[in-house]
């Protein structure tokens, strides 16, 4: 109930913020531009549309998750709005969770709007498009939730610019850990091997959520896999939120 109040307020803030609409506008524009690009390609037009659509949903989702996420807690502290909240009978972790869920709610709305536009476009080109793209969108959404939690973690102790840099790096690294591990396993040094292996399991593996290429080329992705990836996402988010809560619980609001 209290968490919901914070979440709804966070959602309301995002909705009344103009940045969101700007990003949404660009996202829709980008999906629409895939029509144009599709025309330039000989052969499989829907492939381009699918590629562009999924990429836009993912890219703009990440932008919103990072840009809104990094300011989520910091802005409350900087503008001292947090003072009145903490003085109310609410645990700090409830506040944090509320902020997180508020942004997730924002992302849900944003992803739903973009996906609707994207799928309508697909239906225009194909009478019965392969609905496996929904699986890809589902996993993109889980990736967005994970990135949001990382942004929130950094935002709970660092300035927005630093958080932005950190989160963006985590996003990039999160897509490269697989390569990191592979490079490490080629190394002759056992230490390097172990370190890269350790990093591989420690850092978030965002490639787990990337089934875009499979879906676009109609390579089957089992629900079992989706379930694994989603569980991975939820558990990782739980860890990140837990760490954020610990940091947030201990800090002074000067």
């Amino acid at each position: 109930m209290k968490i919901a109040a914070i979440a709804i307020n966070t959602f309301r803030e995002a909705v009344r913020d103009k940045i969101l609409y700007t990003l949404l506008f660009f996202a829709i524009a980008m999906i629409a531009s895939s029509i144009l690009l599709g025309k330039l390609v000989i052969g499989d037009q829907t492939k381009i549309i699918k590629d562009m659509g999924l990429a836009s949903i993912s890219l703009f989702g990440v932008l919103i998750a990072i840009f809104v996420g990094i300011g989520l807690v910091f802005k409350e502290i900087e503008r001292k709005t947090i003072y009145t909240i903490i003085a109310k009978p609410i645990q700090r972790y409830q506040f944090l969770l509320g902020k997180y869920l508020g942004l997730i709610l924002t992302l849900v709305v944003e992803v739903v709007i973009m996906s609707t536009g994207f799928i309508l476009l697909l239906f225009y080109y194909e009478p019965s498009p392969d609905m496996d793209i929904l699986k890809a969108i589902l996993l993109i959404f889980f990736e967005l939730m994970l990135i949001t939690s990382i942004a929130l973690l950094f935002s709970s102790f660092s300035t927005p610019i630093m958080s932005g840099v950190f989160t963006l790096s985590m996003y990039v690294i999160g897509h490269l850990t697989g390569d990191l591990k592979m490079l490490g396993s080629k190394s002759e040094s056992a230490a390097v091997k172990h370190i890269t292996e350790f990093m591989y399991y420690l850092l978030p593996n965002l490639e787990n959520f990337n089934i875009k290429a499979k879906v676009v080329h109609n390579i089957p992705v089992s629900w079992g896999y989706i379930l694994y990836a989603m569980s991975y996402g939820i558990l990782y988010i739980a860890i990140i939120l837990l760490i954020s809560a610990i940091i947030f619980q201990r800090r002074d609001f000067k």
Binding site: N9, K80, T81, Y83, T84, A87, P89
Partner: peptide, 21 residues
């Protein structure tokens, strides 16, 4: 004890509020 805050009202110095509300 967070529960004591049920009966406390607080106005901070130079308060800033959610101005979009």
């Amino acid at each position: 004890d967070v529960n004591i805050k049920r009966d406390i009202g607080f106005l901070p110095e130079n308060p800033y509020f959610y101005d979009y509300l």
